[in-house]
């Protein structure tokens, strides 16, 4: 083990202290405030009243839109995390090959990661505008389309676009985490597998995936959290319209808090979301760590 001797029992905690303090004050404390608010009456103008024994939570569960929104959130998280993991994995496999211009390609793949989500979302919002968006412009001027297409004909399509943008901005993170894993794999494993007569798929299943799994686990947990909490894409492109049909939980609670002035319900929803995340991310982590140990 790589440890060094410790002089006092409390020494490690001293090392942790700055970080612990910073997070306690600026992350944990607001969490506490949110928990407290979720059980208080909050007036429309935002004045906090007294404890109201879970009335906010009851209001959330009674809200007919809540079901739709939870469904959307599930679709959003599963599709974005799932597809971006798959596509990111493929991208990483490709970027790990030797080819002409590999350096350039790797640099380009980093781009979406380095760009603010608000900006990405605004650009895509402009791209898919049917009346004057750039997608129509390019396709018409390149001669691929004859007439302008309404790229957001129904809300289902709009939601699909939002998921697409979500996947688009998530791929680089997955790709580079997996790439990192791939690069740390010893060539000797593959050579051994080749000697054993293993083909591409066998090597993938028995060498690549098991060895990449640790990086993939951490990355997927972080992704679940980030994607679940992702706000600017949906807020910029549809604002949840029509009638919450494209809302996810985070945009929904933002609208509840700041458009409908129902901060009580909104904070209650944050707490619910927190609980869901804890369960999902926790369960995923436990399951994959067990697999690793095996």
């Amino acid at each position: 083990m790589n440890s060094i001797p410790i002089r006092h029992k409390w020494e490690p905690y001293l090392w942790l202290l700055p970080s612990l303090l910073l997070m306690s004050i600026f992350v944990v404390f607001p969490i506490g405030i949110v928990f407290k608010l979720s059980m208080s009456d909050i007036s429309k103008a935002g004045i906090v009243g007294s404890w109201n024994s879970f009335a906010n939570f009851r209001a959330v569960f009674r809200d007919p839109a809540f079901g739709t929104v939870m469904m959307n959130t599930a679709v959003w998280v599963v599709s974005v995390v799932g597809l971006s993991t798959l596509l990111g994995f493929i991208t990483a496999m490709v970027l790990n090959q030797k080819f002409l211009g590999r350096k350039v390609a790797r640099s380009i793949v980093v781009f979406p990661w380095a760009t603010s989500l608000v900006i990405q979302a605004s650009v895509w919002n402009y791209i898919i505008k049917g009346e004057y968006g750039n997608l129509n412009n390019v396709l018409l001027n390149l001669g691929i389309l004859r007439g302008a297409v309404n790229w957001r004909a129904t809300y289902q399509i709009e939601f699909a676009w939002e998921c697409g943008v979500g996947i688009f901005v998530t791929i680089p993170f997955v790709a580079f985490t997996v790439l990192a894993g791939l690069q740390s794999i010893d060539e000797a494993y593959y050579e051994a597998a080749t000697v054993d007569g293993a083909g591409f798929w066998k090597k993938l299943r028995h060498v690549t995936i098991p060895l990449v799994r640790p990086s993939l686990t951490v990355c997927t947990v972080l992704n679940i959290i980030y994607v679940f909490n992702s706000f600017p894409i949906i807020y910029t492109i549809t604002k949840g319209a029509p009638a919450n049909k494209t809302d996810t939980m985070v945009t929904f609670l933002y609208m509840r808090a700041f458009y409908d002035n129902q901060k009580g319900a909104a904070t209650a929803m944050s707490v619910i979301g927190f609980a869901i995340l804890c369960v999902c991310a926790g369960a995923y982590m436990v399951i994959s760590m067990r697999k690793e140990e095996r």
Binding site: G130, E131, N150, R152, A153, Y155, E158, T238, K239, A241, P242, A243
Partner: peptide, 8 residues
């Protein structure tokens, strides 16, 4: 009308 009244 215009095609997307909910977002236009």
């Amino acid at each position: 009308t215009n095609p997307n009244p909910a977002t236009q």
